[in-house]
Amino acid sequence: MIFDRPSSVELLKAVSFFLDEKIKKEVPPHLAFKLRIVENVLKIVCREIEQGDALSEEVINDLKKLINSDIASLEDLANLIKEQKIDLEDQDLQNILVKLSKNKIAVDNPNYSTYKKLLD
C-alpha cells in the first residue's frame, strides 16, 4: 500500500470513537437508534478489511478440495447444490456450508447468539 497511516481501519475506528463519544448523547431517540446502526456498519467494514481475505480463502480452499478444482466460487457451490450434482447428505458439503456461514457472520455480527453458541 502506498498510503500513509492512519490505515483505513484506523480511520474508521477514529470515526466510530467520535460518533460514540461526541455525537451519541446529542441526538434524539429515533436518531440514536439509527446511529447505532451506523456504528455497527463501521465495525463490519473494519472486520472485513482486517479478516475478510483470510475468512474467504478458508472457505474457497475447502470448496476447491470438494469439487477437485483449482478455481472455485460461491456461485459454483450454489450451482452444485441447485443442480443436485452432490448428495445433500454429503458430510463435506454440510461442513462447508457450516464454515461458510460461520465465516460470514464472523464479519457481519460476531455477537450473534447462534455464532457465539457454536463457538462454545
Binding site: V41, L97, V98, S101, K104, D108, N109, T114, L118
Partner: peptide
C-alpha cells in the same frame, strides 16, 4: 448484512 444471521441459524 443480516442475511448471514439467517444462514447460520439454518445450518
Amino acid at each position: 448484512r443480516r442475511v448471514s444471521e439467517t444462514e447460520i441459524d439454518i445450518v
